[in-house]
Amino acid sequence: QVALSRTQVCGILREELFQGDAFHQSDTHIFIIMGASGDLAKKKIYPTIWWLFRDGLLPENTFIVGYARSRLTVADIRKQSEPFFKATPEEKLKLEDFFARNSYVAGQYDDAASYQRLNSHMNALHLGSQANRLFYLALPPTVYEAVTKNIHESCMSQIGWNRIIVEKPFGRDLQSSDRLSNHISSLFREDQIYRIDHYLGKEMVQNLMVLRFANRIFGPIWNRDNIACVILTFKEPFGTEGRGGYFDEFGIIRDVMQNHLLQMLCLVAMEKPASTNSDDVRDEKVKVLKCISEVQANNVVLGQYVGNPDGEGEATKGYLDDPTVPRGSTTATFAAVVLYVENERWDGVPFILRCGKALNERKAEVRLQFHDVAGDIFHQQCKRNELVIRVQPNEAVYTKMMTKKPGMFFNPEESELDLTYGNRYKNVKLPDAYERLILDVFCGSQMHFVRSDELREAWRIFTPLLHQIELEKPKPIPYIYGSRGPTEADELMKRVGFQYEGTYKWVNPHKL
């Protein structure tokens, strides 16, 4: 086992960053958080920038500027975001240094004079007029057009580079997404736009490419001749908990499936790229999406959770019991969808996408189930092999396979070949997804960000279904809070070829 401390991990990262040409360590950078008073800024962006600063992973002359409508001070920003920093008493001095680099400007999102004030403020910072500028839009999409237009007109660096990070949702359907994309691309070049999907920053999602293309053993079996089906799962054990009003506007397909799960599907299904260059990788992902037809209604199961009468606390409440959810809402909190990649490698292999709230566990994984062994000599005792990439929690890679049961006879039983990170790298604290992705933006690497043509294809696949749901308002199937979801989803999976045995229990190697 390799035991690495946080300091050692960050030392390795620093070495990698400083050796590259793309990370300008000594240049002045300004990180501007648009929507600095909001939840995302408070819980994710400010803490992430602090962790990067604490670990010495930001360029040395980096300033952080918050911008929002609320009249706040840096002290206010500190008060609301610091509880999420997880700072230790030993880091007190470092924390003071961090907040000394912070400033805040209040202004409207659609007022040109406010942006001119913001620009004057940035120019007044040390070497601010020639600094590289990175704008993070932690804002609702309704203000994107006004904000990007004003940034472009008043706040661009004339000497350094300018980059803009856009948070999902990128529209509600193909038409609104196209409108937003066309607007942003009329102001910024594609190499300046970073559409963030934080799932692409997760260690195991990034590991998929290495697993596939750096190991000879997987190449020959990664196709329709050997793989019976692919299941991509995202499960949350909690409901909307008072935030249903926002969720109800989008629903589970827009929230998770059309982005996170579809991105994971691309990494499983794509061909080997010409290189690890950002556009070479994204070219292959677009090719996969172009091979997927629009979702067919007979390959869809929609569910909505109801309270568990035997549960406790939140578990007793259904989705419609959330006071922020519109009365009688038919918005799905669970969806199972089957897609097919219609190309030579994957023809006929079902890709089953499942996601839901208020389920029995927290889990995100990719599961490849292989065909049955031909010419069975073990009297149907063999179960199908599976390769599982567990994204969260407890990152893991393992192969479910058959071995001989101890004893006199040739009785096979299920076991696993474990390729888990935790076994080799004991207690290594890896940077989280937002840390990686923000560092990628500083480096100018777009590999783990969504390109406009990729986004367009993703919406093309799901828009007809979303429009049909909005028009017909089908009643989702009720499922109990804390269950596996509607049984109809299991029946759909069985119908397209997935075999669920229920006889195997994964042993978490992190707890051995």
Rank of each mutant, 00 (worst) to 15 (best):
P476C: 06
P406G: 11
L339F: 11
Y500N: 14
S275L: 04
P476V: 12
V450A: 13
N411F: 03
K405A: 15
E435R: 07
E314G: 10
K475F: 05
F498L: 10
N385T: 13
G482A: 06
Q499S: 12
V397D: 05
R460E: 03
L466A: 07
Y340S: 06
D490V: 11
D418K: 07
V391R: 15
E294Y: 08
P431C: 06
S415F: 11
V338Q: 10
P323Y: 07
G482S: 09
P478V: 05
K290G: 05
L387N: 02
Y481Q: 10
E501K: 08
M493C: 13
T316K: 10
F351Q: 01
F351P: 02
H467E: 09
N277G: 14
C382S: 13
V306T: 13
H260D: 13
T316A: 10
E395M: 03
A297C: 10
Y425C: 12
D490S: 13
L302Q: 07
E312T: 06
Q258N: 14
A458P: 02
P478W: 06
V325R: 05
D347N: 14
E314S: 08
S483P: 01
D255Q: 14
N298Y: 11
I377H: 04
F410D: 04
K290D: 03
E488R: 06
N343W: 01
R451P: 02
R327L: 10
D322H: 13
I438M: 10
N259Y: 12
H467T: 11
F410N: 03
N360Y: 04
K285M: 14
K383E: 14
L267A: 14
K511G: 12
N308Y: 12
E454I: 03
G307Q: 07
R460T: 02
E365D: 09
G375E: 12
L302H: 03
Q263W: 11
Q369C: 14
N411Y: 05
A315F: 04
I477F: 14
G444S: 06
A274K: 07
W506E: 14
L289Y: 04
E312F: 10
N423P: 13
T324N: 13
E395N: 14
N360K: 09
K285L: 05
F498G: 14
D280L: 05
H260I: 15
R495N: 11
T403I: 11
D283F: 03
L417W: 14
G444M: 03
R282A: 08
Y319C: 00
K290T: 13
V441N: 00
P323N: 11
A433I: 15
E416H: 10
E312M: 08
R484E: 14
S445M: 11
E470Y: 07
M270E: 01
A396P: 10
R436S: 14
Q468M: 05
D310N: 13
G313A: 10
F498R: 15
I352G: 02
V295A: 14
Y305D: 02
M408S: 14
V325D: 04
V300A: 08
Y500V: 14
C382A: 10
K317A: 11
I480Q: 11
G328L: 05
K426G: 14
A433V: 06
L419Y: 06
M270D: 03
L437R: 15
E284Q: 07
W346Y: 01
D432Y: 07
A489M: 11
D490L: 10
L465E: 01
K505C: 15
A433F: 04
V301K: 04
D376F: 07
K473T: 05
M402T: 12
D321L: 11
E386C: 05
E271A: 06
V388K: 12
N259C: 11
D453Q: 03
E414L: 09
P431V: 13
T463I: 08
T333Q: 02
L262E: 00
Q499F: 11
G348K: 05
N427H: 11
